[in-house]
Amino acid sequence: MTLNPKKTSNILLLIASFVIVSLILWNTNSFFKKFKEEERLKMEIWATAQSELLQSSEDRDLGNLHVKIFQNNTSTPMILVNKDQSIKVNNITEDEAQDTSYLTKKIVQFQAENTPISIDYKGEQLATLYYGNSEVLNRLKYYPIALLLIIFLFGAVIFFFFKTNKASEQNKLWAGMAKETAHQIGTPLTSLLGWNELLKAENISTSITDEIDKDIMRLQTITERFSKIGSLPKLKEYDIVQETKDAYDYLKLRSSKLIQFSFDSKIESLPVLLNRELYHWTIENLVKNGIDAMRGKGSISIEIIPSGNFVTILVSDSGQGIPKSNFNNIFNPGVTSKKRGWGLGLSLVKRIVEEYHQGKIKVLSSSKEGTIMKISLKVNA
C-alpha cells in the first residue's frame, strides 16, 4: 500500500511539530528545575549566614556579611520564624507583613512550593526559613502552558484556513461545473428552437410542437439556473405562496400516481425577495429528494407558516428518514445516499437559501416515518 505524498508530508510535519514541542517543553522543564535549585542554594546560603549571626551576634563583620547577603536577595519572598515566634520578612510589603493572617497563609503557600529550611545550632532549632518562588520562576512555570496554548491557537488557525480554502475550492469547482453545463446545454437548445420552428412550418400538429416548446422552455430555465450558480443573483419581490405552489405543482403533474401530494398555506400571499428560478429549483430539489427517499410511493406535503418577520416553508415526506448524525453532513458537496448521484442537490439548495437569499435551511426532524425539511426566509416588509 502506497501513501499519498501529500498525506505523507502532513504526517511528517505533524511528527516534526510534536518533536519540536516536546523538546521545548523538556528544555523549559529542565531550566525551571535548574533555576529552582539555584534559588534553593541561595536560600541555604542565606540560612547559613543567619545561623552564624544568631550564634554570634556580637561579631560585627559577620553581621555585615549577613546584611550583605540579605540585601542581595531582591526577588525571592521569605518569612523567617525564630524560635521565640518573632517574624522577619523579605520581599513582602510592610502592610502585608503587619497582617498575621496573611503571613500564615503565605507560610502554608511557601511550604507547598518549597521545603522549609531549618536553621539549627548544636541540635537546637534557632529558626525556620519559609520561602516562595520568585516572580521570574512563577512566570517560567506557566510558560509551557502559554506555549501550548499558542501552538494550539496557531494549529487551529491553520486548520480553519485549510478547511475554508478547501471549501472555497470545492465551491469554485461546483460553480465552474454548473456554468460549463449551462454553456454545453446552450448549443443543442438553440438547435431545438430552430427544428421546432421548422416543424411548425410543416404544419405538424400543434399539440406536438406545443409540448416541444414546453420542454425547450424547461431546458432554458435549467440553463438559467446553472448559469447563476457562482454569481450573486438579483432578487425581486415575489409572492412566496404562489411561487412555492407553482414549483410544487410542476412536479406534481409529472410524478407517479402512487404519490399523494398536499399543499397548505396559513396565508393567502406574502411578499418575499426571491430569485424565482433558483427558489423553484430549491423546492423541486427538496420534493425530488423526498420522492427518492420514498422510492416512488408515499406522501409529500408543503406547508407555509408566517412567523413574525420570517416565513417558514416545511417540506415533508414519508420516506425512510435520515440518521441524526447526518443532519448537517447531507448539505456537504458529494454526500449522497443514492447509488447514482453526485451529492450536489442539497449543497446547492443550502447555497441558494443561505448565501443568495440570506435564509436558513435545516433538517427539522427525521425518523423512519419520514423527514421534514425547514426553510426560513425573511419577509419583505
Score class of each variant (00 low, 15 high):
Leu3Lys: 01
Pro5Phe: 04
Ala16Phe: 15
Thr28Glu: 12
Ser51Gly: 10
Glu52Tyr: 12
Ile69Val: 15
Asn73Phe: 02
Asp84Met: 07
Val89Trp: 05
Thr104Glu: 15
Lys105Trp: 02
Lys106Val: 02
Glu113Tyr: 03
Asn114Glu: 05
Pro144Val: 07
Leu148Ala: 11
Ile151Gln: 00
Ala156Trp: 10
Ala156Tyr: 13
Phe160His: 12
Phe162Thr: 11
Asn171Glu: 10
Lys172Phe: 02
Gly176Met: 08
Ala178His: 12
His183Leu: 09
His183Ala: 12
Leu189Val: 13
Leu192Pro: 09
Trp195Cys: 11
Ile204His: 07
Ile208Pro: 04
Ile208Asn: 08
Asp210Gln: 13
Glu211Pro: 01
Glu211Val: 02
Ile212His: 04
Asp213Ser: 14
Asp213Asn: 15
Met217Val: 10
Leu219Ser: 09
Thr221Cys: 01
Glu224His: 14
Arg225Ile: 08
Ser231Asn: 08
Lys234Ser: 10
Lys236His: 08
Thr244Val: 03
Leu258Met: 06
Thr282Phe: 08
Thr282Trp: 03
Glu284His: 05
Asn289Cys: 00
Asn289Tyr: 03
Ile313Lys: 08
Gly319His: 04
Gly334Lys: 11
Val335Trp: 14
Thr336Tyr: 09
Arg340Met: 09
Lys350Ala: 13
Tyr356Asp: 13
Gln358Tyr: 06
Lys362Asp: 15
Leu364Gln: 11
Gly370Gln: 02
Lys374Ile: 01
Leu377Ser: 05
